[in-house]
Structure formats: structure tokens, C-alpha cells
Computed example of a mutant assay.
Amino acid sequence: MTYNLITVDPLGNEDVAKALARCFGVPVRDVDVADEQTDQTLRSWDAAVLCDRAEVRGDVTTSLDVHVQDRVPSPPDEAGLARAFARAARTVVLCPAIEELPSAYWLMTDQGTVTRARLLLSDDEEPVYTVDAVEAAVPRLPHVPVRQLPEIVREQSRETSLSTRAGRAPSSTGGCRGTGRRPGCGRPG
């Protein structure tokens, strides 16, 4: 299973490894975290959890691509990992939502807040990430406006309408397209 997480606070490889170990219930020695400076020949490719960490610019600072081996029992969905990682690393975490919109994200805080967020990337050679809006106040992002994200509601309505016209009943997630690894359109459980 593969996960994509982005954090507001900068995290080093060791911090990420400890948090991932807690989230997946594996020993820290069975988590391999690497960044662009890591010698790839020294990686533990047979670790239960593999993570590529990259520093990014903007309102978020760390991007994590996490791969979990099949031998890890009962891995959470992406929203579940984001919630657990926010608590374990004491940070704010964003993960992609299921909508077709590239800017649609879920945001989880270490205090338990779960809300929608709009994350934009600049066209710069090294993109700048901007949290443009959230649907609930996030104390770690006081400059970000709180507002409803109408494009998400439109996307959900469009997908519900298309499935109804095709003769399919809307899914239990309110008509949203499920991929099996993304949270549903409603608040992630």
C-alpha cells in the first residue's frame, strides 16, 4: 500500500521513522526513511515500511511517500494514517482527497481536527505549496482563510448525478468515487 502525506512542520528522517513505527505498530528498525542525501545503497529495502522524504517550500515543509509491505497487518487507509501520523509526530498533516480536483486535500491536526483544505502548487521550477483555504480553523495556519470549498461540493454533486444517470445507485460515501485507498467524501472515519 502506498500513502502520500505532507506535513506543516519540518521533520527529519529519524522523527518520521519513529512516527511511522508507532502508526504501523512495527519496530523503528523496520522503518527505512530516506531523503535525497541518503546513499541508496545503504537503504534497508526489505523494511516493513519504506518512506521517501523530501523538503518542500511554502505553507507545508515535508512531503512523504510511504510504501508499506504486505506483511504489515491491517494497514490503515490514507486518512487513517494521516490522523495517526499527525498525533505521533505532533504536526499538521495533509493527504489527498478522492475528488478529481488536484487541490482537494484532507487536513488533520495532532489535536484531532479533521477538515478539508485547498492546497495549491505554484508553477515555479521548485514549486511553492500554499494552503489557500480550510473549512475549519487550524491554529498552526492562522493566516489561512476559513471558508467552504464549493468546488468539492460541485465535484461530489457531479459524480452523484453521473452515477444516478448511469443507473447506478450512489455509493455509501454520498456518490463519491472510491479508489479503495482514499477516504470517502464525507468526513474520514
Rank of each mutant, 00 (worst) to 15 (best):
L5I: 11
T7G: 05
V8M: 05
P10A: 00
L11G: 06
L11N: 05
G12F: 00
E14F: 03
D15M: 08
A17D: 00
A17R: 03
K18T: 14
L20W: 01
R22W: 01
R29M: 08
A34T: 12
Q37T: 12
Q37K: 10
Q37V: 03
T38P: 04
D39P: 00
Q40R: 13
L42K: 13
R43E: 06
A48Q: 13
A48Y: 00
C51F: 06
C51N: 07
C51L: 03
D52V: 09
E55W: 01
V56C: 05
V56S: 02
V56Q: 07
G58Y: 07
T61E: 14
T62E: 01
T62W: 02
D65M: 13
V66E: 00
H67W: 07
Q69C: 09
V72D: 04
P73C: 01
S74N: 15
A79F: 06
A82S: 07
A82V: 08
A82K: 03
A82W: 02
F85H: 08
A89V: 13
L94T: 12
E99I: 00
S103Q: 11
A104K: 04
L107M: 05
M108R: 01
T109M: 04
G112R: 07
V114Q: 09
T115G: 07
T115M: 01
R118Q: 11
L119N: 07
S122D: 06
D123C: 11
E125Q: 13
E125T: 15
E126H: 12
T130D: 07
A133I: 05
V134H: 04
A136H: 10
A137D: 09
V138C: 04
V138Q: 03
P139G: 01
P145T: 14
L149K: 04
L149Q: 05
V153N: 07
R154P: 03
Q156M: 12
R158P: 04
T160A: 15
S161E: 15
L162S: 12
R165W: 11
G167K: 08
P170N: 02
S172R: 15
S172D: 15
G174I: 06
G178W: 10
R182N: 12
G186F: 03
